[in-house]
Nucleic acid binder design. Sequence first.
RNA 1: GCCAUCGUAGCUCAGUGGUAGAGCACUUCCUUGGUAAGGAAGAGGUCGCCGGUUCGAUCCCGGCCGAUGGCUCCA
Length: 638
Amino acid sequence: MQRILHWAGQTFSSEASPEEPLYKVLERVGLPAGTEILTATTNGSIHELQAPVGDHVEFQLLGWDSPEGKYVFWHSSAHILAEAILSFFPKAKLSIGPPIENGFYYDIDFGDTPISPEDFERIEQKFLELAAQPEYFVRKKVSKEEALSYYQQRENPYKIELIQELPPDDITFYESGNFVDLCKGPHLWHSGPIRAVKILSLAGAYWRGDSRNPQLTRVYAISFPEKALLEEYLHFLEEAARRDHRNLGKQLDLFSFHEEGPGFPFWHPKGMRLLTALQDWMRAKLLRSGYEEIRTPIILTQRLWEQSGHYENYRENMYFTTIDEEPYAVKPMNCPGSTIIYRSRLRSYRELPLRLFEFGLVHRHELSGVLTGLFRVRAFTQDDAHIYCTPEQIEPEITALLQLVNEVYEAFGFSQREIYLSTRPEKYIGSLELWSQAESALEAALRKSGFTFQINPGEGAFYGPKIDFVVRDSLRRRWQLGTIQLDFSMPRRFGLEYIGPDGQPSTPVMIHRAILGSFERFIGVLLEHTAGELPLWLSPIQVKVLPVSEKFYAYADEVGKALAQAGIRWAVDKTDEKLGKKIREAEQEKVPLIWVVGAKEAESGTVSIRDRRTRTQSEGVPLAQAVQDVLQASQPPI
RNA sequence: GCCAUCGUAGCUCAGUGGUAGAGCACUUCCUUGGUAAGGAAGAGGUCGCCGGUUCGAUCCCGGCCGAUGGCUCCA
């Protein structure tokens, strides 16, 4: 039978019998089987190189560049890692070891002899020795009894549990070297291409992700076909660490965290300048887009949260207090407050859509172990809004919202975006008719706006479908920011109504939406995206004035006054240091514009500008013109 | 909350069973300087908190607090 192979844009063909393994076919036509070519797909599913070709005709051959190649590569690496670990920890019990987005892990019960980071080096060395032999991955079909008795001998309850849940006629072991593991595959033909490995970290992980189960040790690692690729990856990790917003927050004196309030950020003066610049911009933009601003109380009576359903479903994450012997709760969300304003008087259909936004400060009790800088905090300010509209208005509202979201992300240079539409889950409230109307409105709006999006079937909230927005930063990391959620539940729970043209009351649809998500988290993302080099319009200090010596303080103050009058954020450095030192400090502060003033400038009423963004200098710019230039350059995007 | 690792000066970190150090920052003095660190002196720590072992603990042990990496990527 004739087989067709696709590799690197070329097509090859060869005769092969069904029993012949795929790698033999490759070798016959002179392709780099098992070195550059790691695996293959046929009809969209992975076909191992060592597997007989069977009656498949067409094969797409895949290397390191493909997700499937990496998947197989890392899956096999997990086996080698387990083998290497077992050589030092013979009593360790394996559970599962899958490939992940960046590398792979293995969850292992180390019993009484725990692994520590000091063991990493010798395990890595052992790993490379094993991989270099190389080890061939051999698939073996075994009976359920065989499989069970193998792991009963080794007293491994995890594998036994897994086997018991498997169909009896579809259990496979993979052998590689002296190592055997229960595994469905697929794997590399052999370990030869695995030439570099790094054990990254240890973490606790519950067996099957359930906190009632025993906790295993998860060993994270990553492997590569070239040492240079590992180096590159380690550089990426270093760069990510350099951009860590927690470090930048400290270095740039923006915010801090303290034992006195774990998970509650303290905003310093420069951080507040950034936060308010961001909020001012957002506020102006929303007011221009047909929104009205509201503010609702932080503490509200517990009865309200019982009515909204939060008390029942979200109590674990809420803070409670007592006022005049009555139970109250600190708001974890802004929506109930918004509905109170909605129903504060009778509403007409003529008012809809009613768009109310609130920069709402919410408090949520997050588990202590999940707190992470500004990314996961216990108090944050959402750029929240609630749109009350009729079912017919959903589509135009979503269309307008998509445009708004687009403009906002574009303003920060988040040009790579992913959009997800989540549809009706199994458990839902509201009528099927309303759901399908809403889902098709969301989809129609997305299509009309020309955005590419993915559908996550059944992933919507029980109270309505939603759209989620994910951006990629300059290091290509993914961040979920905005969300648009339709809500059929809350308007009913709170008895919201509007009077229609026929004089009869109807229930509005509520759209919850946040674009940045929370200002705190967004600032964290923005700091990592820009490595702290914020755009001029957001910089806490836009211009730093550096007098060459004490003699020019008076002129520096004059310059500062001009900046202040123009509404530009500025600072002057009056430390007793030489100019070089002041420049260095200002550069490390990541100030976009440095204005040097000395004898020449004072005399001629000019400034000498050092621009961080263009790495250029221009001397003798008249003060008035320099101020105008900054004003113009610091205009926020639309 | 659970697991692992960590917690020494404002920051970054070194160090030891016999009550502690560096660089930067800070204060003072000298210096009045032209595009990424001028010089000198000084001040600053109950070595996260509580308890235990010890003649003696920052160091060893336990608990607590906080931080970091993880904890629905399922053979």
